[in-house]
Amino acid sequence: MADTALVIGGTRFIGRHVVDDLLDHGYEVTIFNRGNHENPFDGHDTVQHVEGDRREELDLKTAKLSVEPDVVIDCVAYYPEDVRVATDVFADVDGYVYISSGSAYGVEEIPKREGETELCECTDEQATDDSHDSYGPRKAEGDREIAAAAEEGVNAMSVRPCIVYGPHDYTERLDYWIDRVLDHDRVVVPGDGQNLWHRAYVEDVASALRIVAEAGEPGEAYNVGDRRLVTMEEMINLIADAADTDCAVVHAGERELAAADLAPEDFVLYRDYPHVLDTDKLAGLGWESTPLSEAMEATVAEHRDSDRDGSEHDPGRDAEERVLGVLDTL
């Protein structure tokens, strides 16, 4: 008899890849959510759906009784209370895995290591706040709830991804850069192009969640990210190679950007101080990451078939053209 898995979430970005990965490894899968988003598995014979609100304890208990899962992957625990309640409801499963974040780390150091790098503190106010500024503290407090549950005998673990990219990414962060490469032969990149923000291919995050559920140590957290990091300039080149096109990277410093009222931070996925996660602990469980060229080819191919263009992150092509004009005169 196949193992059963309950995916809390499961229809949007990371969740849908988690479902695919579990199916590929022989699990019977049920997704649990409110049904507010289109279900890509609607009509799929091997994926069941239980409707409910993950913030309602009774709904979680109903899902547990309905599915009797061996493992639970929690894709949408955004508040510490979500984790506390879920680890209580699913206290007897073989593995409960919470998706935390690299944002849970509270200090800047290279690399950030599980159990060594300090986590964010979380005030009572931050624990219930839904703002961007409280995201890291909330995720860190969720990790503490995982550790506390493990102390009580729950097989609970957490996985900390860095910036996640890949097919069906509704954040459209990488879509902005793909769109630029596909539509223009020159792309403005802030600084010298060497800034480093660790990224994780979504299928690798999905496999990490399954592997940690199967082989992780209760109470532990596991970083996940590409095993080979690339700079922003290398990322643009990877996109161009995957799209089989030519695109010149044009570096622009703060002075040149200011000529068009832009700053480096106006460009999505730019980060001044490097954000790098140590992934050795996860690799020790047998996890491997997808080769970057393969990951980018799949990402670009799905982008072409989508209607996403990353326009919400666009600093304005007219402004970029002014920056290019300034640089052309130097």
Results as ranks from 00 to 15, higher is better:
Gly166Leu: 07
Ser158Leu: 09
Asp94Trp: 00
Lys112Phe: 07
Arg160Trp: 04
Ala148Val: 10
Asp192Ser: 06
Glu152Ala: 15
Ser134Trp: 01
Val89Trp: 02
Val71Met: 07
Lys139Ile: 13
Asp169Ser: 04
Pro111Ser: 11
Glu152Phe: 00
Ile110Glu: 14
Val164Pro: 08
Val71Ser: 03
Ala149Thr: 07
Asp92Asn: 09
Met157Gly: 08
Leu119Phe: 06
His184Phe: 15
His132Phe: 15
Ser103Gly: 10
Ala148Ser: 14
Ala149Cys: 10
Gly102Ser: 11
Asp82Gly: 09
Glu109Tyr: 01
Glu125His: 01
Asp175Cys: 12
Leu174Gln: 04
Val71Thr: 08
Ala140Met: 04
Val154Gly: 03
Gly102Arg: 00
Arg84Ala: 15
Glu118Tyr: 03
Asp88Leu: 10
Glu203Tyr: 02
Asp183Leu: 12
Glu145Val: 11
Cys162Lys: 00
His198Ser: 11
Asp169His: 03
Lys112Trp: 03
Ser134Asp: 11
His168Asp: 15
Arg113Met: 15
Gly136Cys: 08
Asp169Tyr: 05
Ala86Asn: 09
Ile163Gly: 04
Val205Asn: 01
Tyr176Ala: 10
Asp185Ala: 13
Thr171Val: 14
Asp133Leu: 13
Glu145Cys: 13
Asp92Tyr: 00
Tyr201Phe: 15
Ala149Met: 05
Tyr165Cys: 12
Val187Arg: 03
Pro190Phe: 05
Gln126Thr: 06
Asp88Cys: 06
Ala200Val: 14
Val154Ala: 08
Ala150Pro: 12
Trp197Arg: 13
Asp183Ala: 14
Gln194Trp: 00
Leu182Asn: 02
Gly102Cys: 10
Ser131Asp: 09
Tyr78His: 12
Arg180Val: 11
Arg138Gly: 13
Thr128Gln: 07
Arg180Phe: 05
Ile73Leu: 15
Pro190Lys: 01
Thr117Ile: 12
Leu182Met: 14
Asp124Thr: 12
Arg173Tyr: 11
Ala86Pro: 08
Ile178His: 02
Tyr135Met: 11
Glu125Tyr: 01
Val205Ser: 03
Pro161Trp: 07
Ile73Arg: 01
Cys75Met: 15
Leu174Pro: 04
Pro137Tyr: 05
Ser103Ile: 03
Gly142Ser: 08
Tyr78Ile: 13
Ala150Lys: 03
Asn155Met: 12
Thr171Glu: 13
Ala200Thr: 14
Gly95Glu: 06
Glu116His: 05
Glu152Tyr: 01
Cys75Tyr: 00
Val205Trp: 02
Arg186Cys: 10
Tyr201Trp: 11
Ala147Gln: 15
Val187Trp: 01
Glu151Lys: 06
Asp169Arg: 00
Ala104Ser: 15
Val189Tyr: 04
Ser134Leu: 08
Glu151Met: 06
Ser134Gln: 06
Ala127Leu: 09
Glu121Trp: 02
Val89Pro: 08
Pro167Cys: 10
Ala140Asn: 02
Pro111Arg: 00
Arg173Ala: 12
Val72Cys: 07
Ala147Trp: 01
Ala149Trp: 04
Val89Gly: 02
Glu151Cys: 04
Ala91Pro: 07
Asp92Ala: 09
Leu119Asn: 04
Val89Cys: 05
Pro80Thr: 12
Asp94His: 03
